[in-house]
């Protein structure tokens, strides 16, 4: 009887993954990811496209790039660049977003947010003149690309804080500055880290283009453009794989930072 019941339950669980809004456990979720990864690998191996190198070719190219072509230092250059730009973006964007609590500063913040419609290509020339090119130009381009979106999201987050949260602090007798610190800064930290996570991804996806503008300092973006130029497809795909994996690593790192700094954030989440 018990075996029958267990069998029926496992059958229901197996079909449940195809039901909309069905809740699955961690183990089942892992199995689903493994399934799709295996499908992707199979598609890659069985791909009929001649321009797509096989997994062994890509792994071999990766080995060569790492040991013979200095992929490690190039990756470090790129990581340094993204870290530098992210740091400036975070300080700048969060500072501007928090300033929305000051009515006199709101137009400035709104203007900064609207700059996201400018796009980067047209800004290369003025930013080159301003920064003198090279590393500073790349930092400026990445910062610009990330900050305008970051400001938009965070300013919206600050704007959406319910009035009751401010009033709650007021009836406790808190000063307006303390209210800004507790409600606006600390109260939205989890959201800020989530927005940071998305904007680092935006910055990381821009890295090839930005490093291609000024290749003198190298970096993984410059490397991929060089390999592209010489049509070394195995190397290109190997570098794309590195970009993807490092991007996922950075994403996981920011996620971990959020989980450590804001343990309360996961409490509001409902698994669907």
């Amino acid at each position: 009887m018990a075996t029958k019941l267990a069998r029926r339950r496992s059958k229901a669980a197996a079909f449940g993954v195809f039901n909309p809004n069905h809740v699955v456990g961690g183990r089942v979720a892992g199995l689903i990811v493994a399934f799709w990864t295996a499908i992707a690998l199979l598609l890659w191996i069985a791909s009929p496209w001649k321009t797509l190198p096989t997994p062994p070719e890509v792994i071999h190219a990766l080995h060569d790039l790492w040991w013979n072509d200095g992929l490690g230092p190039e990756l470090f250059t790129t990581l340094k660049l993204i870290f530098h730009a992210t740091l400036i973006t975070t300080v700048l964007a969060l500072g501007l977003a928090y300033l929305t609590v000051v009515p006199a500063m709101r137009p400035l913040v709104q203007a900064a947010s609207k700059l996201r419609f400018l796009g980067i290509t047209g800004l290369v020339f003025p930013l080159t003149l301003l920064t003198g090119g090279g590393y500073a130009l790349k930092v400026a381009l990445l910062t610009f690309g990330m900050a305008s979106f970051f400001v938009t999201s965070m300013a919206e987050t600050v704007l959406e804080i319910p009035r009751s949260e401010f009033d709650h602090m007021r009836v406790l007798g808190a000063s307006e500055l303390l209210i800004v610190w507790e409600v606006v800064v600390r109260g939205t930290l989890d959201r800020a880290l989530e927005v940071l996570r998305q904007n680092v991804a935006i910055g990381w996806s821009m890295i090839t283009m930005v490093e291609g503008i000024s290749r003198a300092e190298g970096g993984i973006g410059a490397l991929i453009l060089n390999e592209n130029k010489h049509f070394r497809l195995e190397d290109v795909y190997a570098l794309l794989l590195v970009i993807l994996l490092v991007g996922l690593g950075i994403d996981a790192l920011v996620g971990l930072l959020r989980a450590v700094l804001c343990p309360h954030a996961r409490l509001g989440k409902v698994r669907r």
């Binding site: 009751s164 949260e165 009033d167 007021r170 406790l172 409600v183 109260g187 804001c262 309360h264 509001g268």
Partner: peptide, 17 residues
């Protein structure tokens, strides 16, 4: 003035962090 009277609002706001 605000701060002299305690208020518990309907949705019981507390600092969630």
């Amino acid at each position: 003035p605000a701060g002299t009277v305690g208020v518990v609002f309907q949705d019981y706001p507390l600092l969630r962090h």
